[in-house]
Nucleic acid binder design. Structure first.
Lengths: 146, 146
DNA sequence: ATACCTGCAAAGGCTTTGCGGTTCG
DNA sequence: CGAACCGCAAAGCCTTTGCAGGTAT
């Protein structure tokens, strides 16, 4: 949609400003991250990029997501499982996490929590709520004898 | 304090019930985890255990924290940085996390969030709030020119 | 006595890095 | 053209695992 277009343009502008080159791989990684709503792992992004650029390397994807993180356009999330997942959704949102397979889904809640600007000496800058549970697929699989 | 005593006894009872042996290393790891309020990494626990049992191996600490997690006596937390941290605080509590150094502090909030038992097909089992910010130490260091 | 556990070392993932060649601006 | 970037392969963590000897019950 329009939204993604504008975010891509924003990304390109930001790259120009910082003297970062606009390479096809870079754009592809960000585009894929914008499209995915399932917080892909680097490996998953890599597989997706490979469909478009078969010779891309995993290292490039790692380097790109790190760049995106530094630009504030993506966030690394890491809860269950061994590999980090990335998220380009910059709306204020929260996560529903499957404790079995590590799947993550975005959730939105009207309720806002009021966090003081300063807490125990920390300068706070935001919060996020993680709701833990079992995803539909894992619920089904985990159905034991009875 | 008393509290820790009883938690240790609870741990020992639970081990007996499950046929797990009560070894000095195991007890030491749990005791250290109970005492620490800074969510140590496995490496940090290991260093601490080594003071008491110099020949302990890192693998044992890894195995023990996993056992504790399966027993529901410790939780793995993993946000910033590369290594997982462990927490034996089983109260309902939340985390204040330094985005620079990864330090974690427990926080308690009166406000409860009401989470439906089922959410987008997930069977929910709990939630936690992460507040992000800069810890006092990092705030000081990060003080730039002005 | 025996099932479980430990220490050691090796193997296994995920992630980062060094290098030479390539590409964007 | 030059700086930045890419692909490849190797190296670097953190974590797990196999095995032989040791320990709790």
């Amino acid at each position: 949609m329009e939204l993604k277009e504008s975010m891509l343009e924003n990304f390109i502008d930001k790259c120009r400003e910082s003297g970062l080159k606009i390479t096809p791989q870079r754009v592809a990684v960000y585009e894929i991250l914008l499209k995915s709503h399932n917080h892909p792992t680097v490996e998953e992004i890599y597989e997706e990029v490979k469909k478009r650029y078969p010779f891309v390397s995993l290292a490039t994807v790692y380097r790109t997501v790190e760049t995106l993180e530094q630009m504030g356009l993506a966030k690394k999330v890491c809860y269950w499982g061994s590999s980090a997942r990335y998220d380009a959704n910059t709306d204020e949102h929260h996560h529903l996490i499957c404790m079995n397979c590590g799947a993550i889904r975005d959730i939105y809640m009207e309720e806002k929590i009021d966090i003081p600007k300063e807490l125990e000496g920390f300068e706070t800058s935001g919060y996020s709520v993680n709701v833990y549970g079992l995803c539909p697929e894992c619920r089904e699989k985990a159905q034991p004898s009875m």
